[in-house]
Design a protein around this nucleic acid. Structure first.
Lengths: 211, 211
DNA sequence: TTATTTTTCAAACGAGTGTTTTAATCAGGT
DNA sequence: ACCTGATTAAAACACTCGTTTGAAAAATAA
């Protein structure tokens, strides 16, 4: 274990390039040159380019989703203790608040979040499958919580609204990337906290709209 | 003008493959084999792969956006005649209704809509720029109409909500693709009309939510 | 018919891809 | 010192990519 540097250099650089340029558009040559390591380092340390992608997503998504789950469970427990339904707004907050804290905490987090935001609808199977495998369990738990908060909603309508929710969320996440801003018609935007706050209100209103 | 067949075969096949597999993941070999034409046909008829993408998007998006603009202008004129503000729900309907009709009218339309839905956040510059160039004028008009329907909203908040709207819309559009369903956790879904209807209500509630 | 243009076809081109190989270099243990 | 395993380095591998070429084939015009 002589050099943890090389692995970290690659993870950080890959996180940035995958988010900004896309997974397939990032070649091993560009990646390794920018990271300042040898071309063969990726295959030596991670086995393959695809495994590197998994490592990039895993490194940040597992702790982030852990925080999210904790916050969600807290809301559910509180509701259960008071024998009331969980509130939609509380669940949304529990899901989004860790994301906001996460965005501020680490340097490459914005690139990572943008990578995640895009992965949901990525036409490329590699990226999509990797993301889905790592994100699905928590998301299904989140969906289950929301279902309990909206028990009167028709099941199909609930699922549709869940899809709208995912769309809005991933749009916001993508936007944090500098690459995404290249064509945005929005000149100056809200800071992250206020945008999250607005997303919260938007989603609450949409989810609780009359059928 | 001996063979309009080849061009149409290529456009149809490209529309399908670009939507399902992504632009870069669709090679000229696969494309031309599936279309039943020679490898060199794309470069002969369209000049390049990128020009083919432009042709694919142009063919359907220009008439579709024309319908959308007509419907939007009608809403705006009616509001102006009655000297009232246009209603958010009417504008949303004017934008989405042509899409729904379009989805039913033509065979490859679903693939096309899914391609468009993804293009908004596509990390690939080729796809993204092509889509933006062709879609932006109408979208800015649409945004202007919505702004008139929501004059009391803070400008930055309005722009944020616009972003949420785009996210939800593109999520729904992506979903129409068979490729996107591969990992969807949704077993049975609403038909297109009811989903559009639900999207309408969801967006209206979100856009008109208290600040 | 001949002449001319348009379209198709197979083959090759040059560049770029992820990965593997083989030797060199480095570290730590004995 | 020597040995051993981990890491780096340069080069090559096998492959795919979009595009181009030049001749054959088909369609159109005179």
């Amino acid at each position: 274990m002589a050099s943890p540097d090389t692995k970290k250099l690659l993870l950080d650089c890959a996180e940035k390039l995958f988010a900004q340029e896309g997974f397939h558009h990032t070649s091993m040559r560009i990646l390794t040159v920018q990271a300042g390591v040898n071309l063969a380092a990726v295959n030596y340390h991670f086995g393959s380019k695809e495994n590197l992608l998994y490592a990039v997503i895993e490194r940040r998504l597992i702790p982030l989703n852990h925080k999210r789950r904790e916050a969600l469970e807290q809301v559910m427990q509180k509701a259960a203790a008071n024998k009331i339904r969980p509130a939609v707004i509380d669940l949304l907050y529990a899901f989004l608040q860790p994301t906001l804290k996460f965005l501020r905490a680490s340097e490459g987090a914005k690139n990572f979040i943008s990578l995640i935001g895009r992965s949901w609808n990525d036409p490329d199977q590699t990226v999509h499958n990797c993301f889905i495998n790592l994100a699905m369990p928590l998301f299904q738990y989140f969906a289950g919580c929301l279902r309990q908060a909206l028990p009167d909603l028709d099941e199909l309508i609930f699922q549709a609204r869940l899809q709208f929710l995912v769309g809005s969320m991933s749009a916001v996440m993508c936007d944090n990337s500098s690459a995404c801003k290249r064509s945005s018609f929005i000149s100056v935007a809200l800071d992250e906290e206020e945008k999250m706050n607005q997303l919260l209100k938007f989603l609450q209103a949409g989810l609780e709209a009359p059928q």
